[in-house]
Amino acid sequence: MASQDDEFTMLFQDFYPSLCRFLECLLGGRAPLAQDLAQESFLQLHRTAWGTLPPGEARFWLYRVARNLAINEFRKTNTRYRLFDRVVEAMRPAARNPEQEYETRERKQLVLEMLQTLPEDQRAALLLREQEQLSYREIGEVLNISESKVKVDIFRARAALRERWSKKVKVAGASVS
């Protein structure tokens, strides 16, 4: 039992941060929610599938569950919740520690905003490719779609982002450096 937990801990340390990142990008930057959902994914893994999965499958399983949890979150909260968030955001007092991490935050915000312009399935596919380095086959497995759809989705995502992105990054790069 102890060694099972050790193995689980290793898997957790290896993949919890990237799962959080994946979810954060998928959810448009809602980091605490991303952390909760990542935790929930690992909790489900620990409770149910851990020990029954073939070696190497746990990671894909996690991304699959996490992505599904995220979709559920969108369904549950839908647009109005985000609108509500925005109202709250607008009413919040001005930034508290603006000088710190400002630059990083700008960049992150830019990445998030660009990603949010994509349909969810394209965004998920692109994230799994660029951040997790999964192959098309693996992405197809996680997202439950065909490899050829993965290929097209990723290409479309890139093509769509390309214009806006290069423009924005140039502007941001110019003002930062």
């Binding site: 801990t9 919890y16 959080c20 990142r21 690992f42 409770r47 990083t104 994230l127 992105w165």
Partner: peptide, 25 residues
């Protein structure tokens, strides 16, 4: 740009999450 994105993840959150999962499971 996408791959250099860093999650906003304080170390404490990760520690706590693991503890909860191991206990909770």
């Amino acid at each position: 740009q996408i791959s250099s994105f860093e999650a906003s993840l304080p170390g404490v959150v990760q520690k706590r999450a693991l503890a909860k999962i191991l206990a909770g499971g």
